[in-house]
Design a binder for these strands. Structure first.
Lengths: 211, 211, 211, 211
DNA sequence: CAGTAAACGAGACGGTACGTCACGTCTTCAG
DNA sequence: CTGAAGACGTGACGTACCGTCTCGTTTACTG
């Protein structure tokens, strides 16, 4: 006794989905999230508005999926280019030197966050997630958590190697260097440089108190 | 040949300002930021739309000022209630035990962030700030920075007492416990409890590596 | 290389046609002509939209045919019920008393026009015909003209009997009592009663000037 | 306890009203009533849609008022051009020869109904009135009735002069020549010529039966 | 203390976008 | 290989707000 007879996803037009993702990302980069409208996305994608409303319930959802799709395609492309198993592509290196490994990855993150093509949609998505419960959950689950898990895994490996105290909770420990970076980027409370993340790693590993 | 003949702020109606702040905060709590409209604020405040547009340029600005005003009134009320000089009201205590002092303040912050009356507008403001340059700057300057300065000051005092290494940059050091809290709250990446902030302070002060 | 590969009418589904006629007439009675949609007819008839578009080019056409079909079925049923040759069924009686015969038929027409089941679709059809050339022609040809011919025939018989002046054009003469009735019904310029049509017949036959 | 707080008509923009009337009539002449949209009228008039919805509730109402306005302006212009009191402008002449007077006026009506500029909107209005109760009432009251009253008055004068039987109801009598004309025009059941209306008048005044 | 200029409440205006509905066409899949 | 089902591009619907622009009406300063 469905009220609205859900659409039949097996008949969905792949062409339209692609075009909508592309249009959404392009518009957000060009004119910003708040000026991007569903009508504008539809027009740019050469698609009827109803085709968007049929499959998504809000602008935030479209953007989230577009962004996830972009991430997947990028990851696949990167993995392919490197001739690497995609499953390995996003690992944090483990050279045995924990500080060096973290600094390497966080420096790369700083560079990525400074890329204007990435920044506009990612920032918009984060803001939407802060205010829209539904987007928030999928955002954390699909985008944020997987990244954090990598850090947690690296910290656990370090614990086994004796480089991190055994009683440290990795899920909290990683926040000492990840969250400051996130906050500076999101709220603009400070500049993002390689030196800054190096300092963060040093402080986090060694603490602020004298040894 | 003035372009716009700026309004004469000496003639501004205090009554209207009050009513607009109240209406804005009420609406954001009741229906959320994105459903709050300038027209709605005006109607609720019993005010003409032009009176809003005369003094503010966007919904974000109205909210920001309403929120600052709320903070000031709360602070003044709290100080008065405590019979304390308002200038002292927001200090971080210095009992000589840095960890205890930080835990005390951060636990209070956790409680404050869990207050629904505070949460909706504050969160909305943070989200707006992430996306709107103008709001962002005033938000950081007026709301975020003053709070961070208090932590920085406390850390500097701790350095003089030898409880924090002399080579630590207090502005970065404070982020080790403040930013994780902020991120969990804004992005919902974990729960906010007193135990959590206690752990944060311990990790931050003592580091993750074995001593 | 046919342009449109016209549908093969020999393969047409009689079941669908019936269902579409029924659905169309039911919807027009229930919700009115302008709120009746092709999509709605298709859904109600349990038929694909294409099945409608294949055989009719507009809502007006569907209605027109549905109505013609209804009329035919009614006539056949009435004739059968009366045990009469259907060809005679729609004749205007000729008792020798022209005025009485006309009054009899026009009174029946008044009753018919007051039947709500008849009224909604018929009125919608008339309105559509006033604005849509294509519908108009078929409407006049199939529905209006046959009725008018009956009056013309009766007037011609009256001319032979000497009850109507020989120089009168029956096609114009009949309008004196038929058109006023039609206008009152269509435009609501006056009430429709048996007394009214009696008066019309009297005036038409005897004229307005003193004799 | 009004649900919608009716608009303040004293603040209404005369400019917009004019532009909307003009746009509506132009569009109906150019592309027909059913293809004319509120959006189209607004665009053509250089007006926001809401300005139309604020003052009218349907396309039919806009057209009706546009048409009434057109009629008033025409009448005023005609009266001025003729140097005549506008109150006299629409009288049916009374030369003492009833048949001649009626033929004169009906011939003029035929000419008017053949004017394409007049025809499209007038016909659309009549059709709308047949189907839309609200429009219908105002249509009859404002457009149809005043015209019919003129004929009724002329017939009453003829009764006093002894040219029409005293027992004839003028409101019904006039339908003998007015309604046939209306029906031919609206439903296209026959051609409209001067000869036709002459015949109508003759039949109506003298009846169809031999004298 | 009147005169007057600005701020005010109200809300109409030209617009943009919303989310929904139906159009007429095109594609898929079951009988 | 027909026909129901329904997704698609299109475009109008009627509504909500936008930011601007008059309207009178307070309100508070100035002469």
């Amino acid at each position: 006794m469905a009220t609205k007879t859900a659409p039949d996803s097996s008949r969905r037009s792949e062409r339209s989905r692609r075009a909508i993702y592309d249009a959404a990302l392009a518009l957000i980069s060009e004119i910003g999230y708040s000026k991007t409208t569903i009508e504008g996305i539809a027009a740019r994608a050469g698609v009827g508005k109803q085709t968007i409303y049929r499959w998504w319930s809000s602008k935030g959802e479209v953007l989230l999926e577009a962004f996830l799709d972009l991430g997947e395609r990028n990851a696949a492309a990167a993995a392919e280019a490197a001739g690497v198993d995609p499953a390995d592509a996003r690992h944090i290196p483990d050279t045995g030197d924990l500080a060096a490994d973290l600094k390497y990855v966080l420096r790369a993150t700083v560079d990525e966050l400074s890329d204007p093509a990435f920044e506009a949609p990612y920032r918009a998505l984060a803001a939407e997630g802060m205010v829209n419960r539904e987007v928030s959950e999928r955002y954390v689950e699909k985008l944020l958590e997987p990244g954090l898990q990598l850090y947690a895994a690296r910290l656990r490996a370090a614990q086994e190697a004796g480089d991190v105290r055994a009683d440290v909770d990795p899920r909290i420990g990683l926040e000492l260097f990840v969250s400051p970076l996130a906050q500076r980027w999101l709220q603009g409370t400070g500049e993002l440089t390689h030196a800054y993340v190096d300092t963060l790693v040093d402080y986090a590993l060694n603490g602020l108190s004298p040894r």
